[in-house]
Design a protein around this nucleic acid. Structure first.
Lengths: 338, 338
DNA sequence: CTGAAAGCGCTTACAG
DNA sequence: CTGAAAGCGCTTACAG
């Protein structure tokens, strides 16, 4: 292994000076710099990250803590993760993925190893034990999602309010007046505190009232089967329905296939709009789903940047709420009698 | 931060002895051990992984290099990754994900940082530049997938031969005699060298010949749309077909929906069997797909273990080929005129 | 602008 | 079985 000592020797300088040009941390004469840079390329020097970490007390590694909920790690999680990894790489950081429990025990253990400079918390619960733990340990962190009272905590999240508003506006604009919400399964104990479910439902209630649309909410877990079942219930219990908003991705696929199976024409007879979905998933439906596209890439990047800014002592990024963006597909249209 | 020095002082021993009990690397009197352990818990000591890494020249971090192909990072990749992360954690290693290019340039750069002890290579191409690079650098690695001549390289992969054999046997046993293969898009430049596509096609040719089944191969890229299109072609060009084997996951979903759309009854009129699929994806089809389940979790684990064994200097794991396992669903049945 | 030296928190021969 | 000491490859005051 070629070390800084080798480089320094070859360039005829001290290792301190090598370090200065490497990190651009002190002014160095162009001539000296050139000598050192030549020595580095000639020797094929690559700086040892571990030694740097130990000396500087900064590993330049950050962790993304992903709770192993009942939730699958699918397209959406992958989007968050890969965009976060990219953002980290661009700033010369590494990202490690920590699939840890929600109670924070494993997280404490891992953070204690002093391996990472900070943590990006995914799937933050409204009341999340991990937040208090990181605060008490003093580990820098950023949230993707937010607790009930996120003020003062660096966080980014989906702007559920705006997303639902825009979704309802879109459907209302098409002429729909009976717009049902297929919400997440808030009655399931694991999800009682799940922000996206809680917030989309609340937003729907508010926006529906505002538009004078009757509030009809059915729950569905995030499976195609459950979506199919709820589709049947929608048509049986609320026959006047002309449009359905669906929170869960795979439930939305099921709602579409379920409606078709029952002989309903999507979108001519009934429109389906997915509230939080990735384009990849949208393409699995036939017709391709009209969606509010989950801003996974944006949030992964913003969350990572928020954390890195803290680590670098830069101006903190203000909390950001990013709405899902409307992406037209084939499952929405004017209602027949609109 | 509580260091080994603090522990040693409190226990009245040297830091060497603390290290010995911590790593269980030399015999220590029960009494001494007890003193040290008490001191550690009293002080809340956690060993600093970075210092350990520098001193021991082993970081206990391994990387999973995932090439950013045209491929998406979906369920399957997630399965590989999370099972690998779990396997690593169980052996007290960390796993980092490196989304790197296929040419090996970024990989070289990252490996040069001495951050990881070894690399698990995902999506290995039949002729993969990364393999030669890692060999020349001398970084330990394990392959998930394999090159054309993987002998001597530690690797694990899907047993495509057995998978296709079992799939054909299953269909043949049901009475099918006209079994079409919807292969991957080998004609696409990116995938000419893609092992799973090449190997499944070769295996189908061999097995079909063996069973006296006419060899019919159509290509499809891994999208639902492409699957739908190919379904139409199958029925138009090979009307006697009673069963379809599909290599690509999302193409398989498209084949099912495409057939239904054309008015064909799945499985009564035609059976569909997905050759490499995750159960999550299977559930998205209606009826749920009959699949050969991709052994993602097994391979992620085995690949990681193969690497860790090398790192620990243990008996190397022999290369392992794991077949996809048959998982019944609703898309296969006896042919009508069987 | 450059260098000598201490130190980051561990591991590991070596000696006893 | 235990300890004193060197060393892993860097960074960073401190001095000049």
């Amino acid at each position: 292994m070629v070390t800084m000592r080798d480089v320094a020797q070859r360039a005829g300088v001290s290792i301190a000076t090598v370090s200065f040009v490497l990190n651009d941390t002190k002014p160095v004469t162009p001539a000296t710099r050139a000598k050192i840079e030549r020595a580095m390329t000639e020797l094929g020097f690559r700086r040892n990250m571990v030694a740097r970490a130990l000396a500087s007390r900064r590993t330049r590694i950050i962790a993304m803590a992903y709770p192993a909920l009942d939730h699958r790690f699918g397209f959406s999680a992958a989007e968050f993760f890969t965009s976060a990894a990219d953002a980290a790489r661009k700033q010369d950081y590494h990202l490690v993925l920590w699939p840890v429990g929600n109670d924070g025990a494993e997280l404490t253990e891992l953070v204690g190893q002093s391996l990472v400079d900070g943590v990006v918390l995914m799937e933050v619960q409204l009341d999340d034990a991990r937040v208090g733990i990181l605060q008490s340990i003093g580990t820098p962190f950023a949230l993707i999602g937010r607790t009930t009272t996120p003020d003062g905590l660096p966080h980014v999240d989906i702007d559920f309010e705006t997303t639902v508003e825009n979704a309802v506006e879109e459907l209302y604009g098409l002429g729909h007046r009976q717009i049902v919400l297929v919400a997440g399964d808030l009655s399931h104990p694991s999800f009682r505190n799940y922000g996206p479910y809680v917030r989309t439902e609340a937003a729907y209630r508010r926006v529906a009232a505002e538009y004078g649309v009757q509030i009809v909410i059915l729950e569905s877990s995030d499976t195609t089967r459950s979506g199919q079942e709820v589709a049947a219930r929608v048509m049986a219990e609320h026959p006047g329905t002309t449009a359905v908003l669906v929170v869960n991705e795979y439930a939305a696929l099921g709602v579409v296939s379920g409606l078709k199976k029952l002989g309903h024409d999507v979108p001519r007879e009934i429109s389906v709009l997915a509230l939080l979905m990735s384009p990849e998933t949208a393409r699995l439906a036939d017709p391709e789903l009209t969606i509010m596209r989950t801003p996974g890439p944006e949030l992964g990047q913003l969350g990572t940047e928020a954390l890195i800014r803290q680590l670098e002592g830069a101006e903190p990024l203000p909390p950001q709420l990013v709405p899902a963006s409307y992406q037209p597909g084939g499952t929405t249209a004017r209602p027949r009698s609109g």
